[in-house]
Amino acid sequence: MTVLEGTVLAGRSFDPITGRVVVEDGRIAAVEEGETDSTDIILPAFVNAHTHLGDSVAKEAAVGLGLEAAVAPPDSRKHRRLAAASHDELVTAMRRTLQFVRRTGTVTCLDFRESGVEGARALREAAAPLEVDPFIFGSDDPAVLEVADGFGASGANDDDFTEQRAAARTADVPFAIHAGEPDASDIDPALAYDPELLVHMVHAEADHLERVRDRSIPVAVCPRANTVLDVGTPPIRELLDHTTVALGTDNVMLNPPSMLQEMAYTAKHHDVTEREVLRMATTAGAEVAGLDCGVVEAGRPAALTVVDGDSDNLVGTADPIRAVVRRATALDVTNVLV
């Protein structure tokens, strides 16, 4: 049995309670109110709703480049670096990134893995010795679904994904697709695939938002990456008013995959509350992938992040949710329980 004491951000509303979380056999046995001297803040571990971990072989290689030159298939700087990397180099680089991901409080990434079956297997190999379990959206050949957890399409203007969409439906796994990143031209054709997840939607217009709401399609947003690539600002407030919105960090080559940094940026640059941002970084991503985590309550798997509320950085912050969302850094994370 493991007992964590402090301020617990409990339930789907993250109500701060003073007390403890009791963990038995890998699950939360109880969340109990009570006195404690601990200044720790206990919250759900983060779920990063959109990554490209393969970019770990090309960190900061796209400085000064726009979207097409940086990441667009097949001839961007990113794809040239991926093609040049050996299997061992790729696995090692992704493993190092996953180690960073866990240290910063994240237990899973919803990753768009390039290079088909071989790429998905490389990510499985990278994650095997770690306590981080990526949810892999595979690419290219529909046969990737024998290894991956779903299919991830680059964008409806890049190729025809009819066969892959059908294969995902047959396998009963999610089909996700980038849409509305450089402009709105690929949103309607992306919606035509009836996806289980849309990524970016920076240029979503009113009719797109209505269709997303009517179909209950969740959206993963990556505001830091959108800023780096100068493609625009995602309408997060409007998206939240229409559907489930999850938070991701996007390409490792552009930004470190820290949900702490992504939350702080989102809270400070968008019309959202701290609770909404925390939900985007935990519960929403878990729901998108059908994972039973993202909430601190009895019966859930014990996927928890512990932050030192009395750290030099956080001491004096009266609101624990605000402390975590707007201010916490990797240095404040003291434990990640999986």
Rank of each mutant, 00 (worst) to 15 (best):
N157W: 12
A303E: 15
V212R: 01
E163L: 12
E5K: 06
E297V: 15
E146R: 06
M259C: 01
L331W: 12
P129Y: 04
A93I: 07
P73L: 06
V231A: 01
I217G: 01
E24L: 02
L65M: 14
R81Q: 13
L130E: 06
T249S: 13
L337I: 14
C109P: 05
V325M: 00
V252S: 00
A126T: 04
A10E: 04
H242G: 00
T36N: 13
L278K: 05
V288I: 11
A143T: 10
D172F: 09
T317P: 01
D149P: 03
S86F: 03
D55M: 02
A29M: 04
S38N: 11
M259V: 04
L198S: 06
G116T: 09
T273E: 01
D188I: 14
F135S: 04
L198Q: 11
D319A: 02
E114V: 04
R121H: 11
H79D: 09
R12H: 03
G119C: 08
R102V: 11
R165V: 13
V91D: 01
T92F: 08
V288F: 02
R12A: 08
R81L: 15
S216Q: 13
L43H: 09
P218K: 05
V3F: 00
A179M: 08
P44Y: 03
D312F: 10
N157H: 13
I187G: 06
V71C: 03
G180N: 05
M1S: 12
R96W: 06
P73K: 08
A153K: 01
L260E: 12
D271Y: 04
I177Y: 01
L53T: 13
G299A: 11
I41Y: 07
D15T: 15
A171K: 08
T334A: 09
V101G: 02
A85H: 03
A72Q: 13
R215C: 09
L191M: 15
V212K: 00
L337N: 08
E210L: 10
L98S: 00
D55P: 01
V107A: 09
V199N: 12
A206L: 11
T249V: 06
A143P: 03
T18H: 07
R211G: 06
V47K: 05
E196Q: 15
D75C: 04
Y265W: 15
P223F: 07
A156I: 12
D271T: 08
E68C: 04
D332T: 11
A192Q: 13
D194H: 14
E274G: 13
R275Y: 04
G6S: 07
